[in-house]
Amino acid sequence: MPVHTQGGEPRRPPFHAEAARRLREALGMTPAHVAYGIRAAFGIPVPPATVASWERGESTPTEAELTALAGALWCAPGDLLGAPGTLREYRLALGLAPADLALRIGMDRAAYERLEAGGAWRGSDRQAAALAEVLALPLPALVRFTGRDGHLTELLTSAATTRWQAYVRPVGQVVPLSRQQLRSVLQELHGAYQATMAATLNWGGSDSAEESGRAGRAFLDGILAEFWARAGEPRP
């Protein structure tokens, strides 16, 4: 089931035009050869001019066309995509159909398609682990796709602004990192937040408290990205 924009048009995959051109040229093929391969193997009538348009970045293939193009170029769909940022893009990079992925993680197809279209995660921990394994998801992506970003942000905010020690276990229930690593990262976040607040208060003047509040809010607004960076898991 395609994801649609507000205008009703199917959202195209994040196509890497330059990669497509390089792969075609490395095989000694012309756009006409590629178009023929797509039509012969996949039954999709794509004119050579369309293939050339994809390579110039003037248009992008649909999901079905992307899979066919990868087949014609003897590569994986992921070789024709930019860095994945959505659940659908991670799936496309592996050339999996929604039904295939749903089957592999033990989820109803309709439930998975709702998730990919922006619905809330309704799966189990076992299904979440299977999703991460099948798609090779980075930890930040898994937390985001399973809808735990907001809860994690709340825990991190409390850890930075109060006693961080009390939040090692709750954060560990959301993020499967070692207790030692979590203690270290939460202590660093707490120290960084307190240092930010103290630095602005030490500026002196009647506006120092207001400046401190702004600096503190700015730090907390970015606390999730800061957590992933300090944990060695850059957020996608």
Rank of each mutant, 00 (worst) to 15 (best):
L94C: 10
L94V: 13
G95D: 10
G95A: 08
L96K: 14
D100I: 13
A102Y: 08
R104D: 05
R104L: 07
R104A: 08
I105E: 04
G106M: 01
D108R: 03
R109S: 06
A110I: 14
R114S: 15
E116T: 11
E116A: 08
A117W: 09
G118A: 11
G118F: 15
A120Y: 12
D125Q: 13
D125A: 12
D125I: 12
R126V: 12
Q127D: 03
L131P: 07
A132F: 13
E133M: 14
L135F: 12
L135V: 10
A141I: 08
V143G: 06
V143W: 07
R144F: 02
F145E: 04
T146W: 01
D149Q: 06
H151Q: 10
T153C: 04
E154W: 02
E154Q: 07
L155I: 01
S158I: 07
A159M: 04
A159N: 08
A159P: 02
A160Y: 02
T161N: 00
T162M: 02
R163L: 12
W164N: 00
Q165N: 00
Y167D: 01
V171R: 02
G172Q: 05
S178F: 07
Q180D: 14
R183Q: 09
R183P: 01
G191P: 04
Y193I: 07
Q194T: 11
A195E: 07
M197Y: 12
A198P: 03
W203E: 15
G205H: 11
S206L: 13
S208A: 11
S208C: 06
A209P: 01
R214I: 14
G216Q: 03
L220W: 00
